[in-house]
Design a protein around this nucleic acid. Structure first.
Lengths: 187, 187
DNA sequence: ACTTTTGTGTGACGTATGTCACACCATTAA
DNA sequence: TTAATGGTGTGACATACGTCACACAAAAGT
């Protein structure tokens, strides 16, 4: 199985060959084409996804059919509708591919099994979750504190790669601005 | 030590008397008066706080002296500047008391020690962090999807207690709206 | 090769919300 | 008792941003 996953774990905790081999049996590789859905609103969410290759977005679409992007995920990112995943409810988000993408799927059962069996893994996921929490707090601050231009610029700074790979329409929807406003900012 | 903390842990994982007794030696009780700071911008943040009694706010103040509230915390809530705490940097947030409050302090060292020694505790904090993450995602969606009125109403629904204990000026600053706009909403 | 879809710019206009100003009351401190 | 502080309402006005409309080009699908 992908050495990418191992490297990813080992940024936080070292693993023996056996340990990693054991861990990797709990993941399932899958491929998706552009426009395919990893998670679809209204249906259960058995898996969390670790992106090996490609690019996806996680988004919420409201009653007026306006889409708000919660997250992009490219190589080495995790993505899911975590609310639905952890609470075993139906998804309220969609996760779909902006490019052809390859992922490793981790079912909730396998995740909890690994966490229970290997303290290291529980530690890993705690650390991941902590960082995620902090990042979201930053995002909230940026939504409250900065105007469209400020958010646009700090996105550009923090995610130059995404900025190139993602259409601006979607970046607008990630930043919480209309497509038109974003367009006027860059000109 | 406070049975409140034990109950709080046991919502997620059962503990023996000895276990809890051991755990509790890692916490330090402290009392603060209204207007005192638990965390102050620019200084290190050695502790995370579990609120036993009282009410605090965690906020960011920008260059124009505008305050944005990231979180309120009352009984049974955890509060901190987690970015500074986990990364051992200086605080960018302030945490201060809206009421006289009693907390249990958990240093980063003790937290990591407990997590390493007791798998249960690492599990506890992973679960906590996961829920926190999900809650912040919801908040982001609400900032992007709802207008002032919508956010105000869902805050009222979700936190009727806070609504009573917290001045509306501060609720406004939590919701990302001006004091005046919020005032006009309720009338 | 043709059509459809996707991405992007730009003008005109409406509106939700911010800002500034002032007034009033309740509470706390001196 | 007075003064200072904190919380709230409300009017007048400014503005950032959304919405709708149209145009055009590039990419994708047939």
């Amino acid at each position: 199985m992908s050495p990418q996953l191992r490297q990813h774990f080992e940024k936080i905790t070292p693993l023996s060959d056996q340990e990693f081999e054991y861990i990797s049996t709990h993941f399932v590789a899958k491929k998706f084409k552009k426009h395919q859905f990893l998670v679809q609103e209204g249906v259960p969410v058995p898996n969390d996804f670790f992106v090996i290759k490609g690019l996806v977005k996680a988004s919420f679409t409201n009653d007026e059919n306006k889409e708000h992007i919660l997250q992009f995920a490219m190589e080495d990112w995790w993505v899911c509708d975590y609310q639905a995943y952890f609470n075993k409810t139906n998804a309220t988000l969609n996760v779909d591919c902006l490019e052809d993408t390859e992922v490793l799927c981790l079912s909730l059962t396998n995740r909890e099994k690994l966490c229970a069996e290997l303290h290291k893994i529980e530690h890993f996921f705690r650390r991941k979750s902590n960082s995620g929490y902090i990042a979201l707090q930053q995002r909230i601050l940026s939504l409250m504190n900065s105007d469209a231009k400020g958010r646009y610029e700090s996105f550009l700074k923090q995610h130059p790669t995404l900025f190139q790979r993602v259409p601006k329409t979607l970046i607008a929807s990630y930043l919480g601005v209309s497509r038109e406003t974003l367009s006027r900012l860059s000109s």
